[in-house]
């Protein structure tokens, strides 16, 4: 439960393997933060092809936005793809040949 937004986290997404629920403290916090920033930067390498961008927010959420300024708050990768689908207007398919071609050319 987040005390600020009263958002209950019922499900830990499988990609958040070791962290589990909640934000760790001490030395672990650095690693935790770093991992989240790393994840956001990697995700952006894909999302930029759809005109989307994700930012890490305060160690607890991610903020997904498009170029029109629309934003979605997400908890984890489980929420990222549905939210991205909503903003983009279609399903983001990793098998899409157009996306793969763009990734290869590194157009972003």
């Amino acid at each position: 439960m987040c005390v600020l937004c009263t958002g209950a986290i019922l499900q830990v997404h499988w990609t958040d393997k070791s962290t589990g629920a909640g934000i760790p403290d001490g030395d672990q916090l650095r690693l935790y933060r770093r991992e989240r920033l790393h994840r956001a930067s990697l995700a952006n390498k894909i999302l930029c092809h759809y005109g989307l961008k994700v930012e890490e927010w305060n160690g607890s959420k991610y903020l997904l936005s498009d170029r029109k300024g629309r934003q979605e708050i997400i908890d984890d990768l489980g929420g990222l793809w549905p939210a991205a689908e909503k903003l983009a207007g279609y399903t983001l398919n990793p098998l899409d040949t157009v996306l793969i071609a763009k990734l290869k050319q590194d157009v972003c």
Binding site: T15, R39, L42, I46, L77, T91, L92, P94, L95
Partner: peptide, 16 residues
């Protein structure tokens, strides 16, 4: 890289 792999797999599973 777990993070990179997780991104790809979660995207794949969402789409397919």
């Amino acid at each position: 890289d777990w993070t990179a792999f997780g991104l790809w797999l979660s995207m794949l599973l969402h789409a397919k």
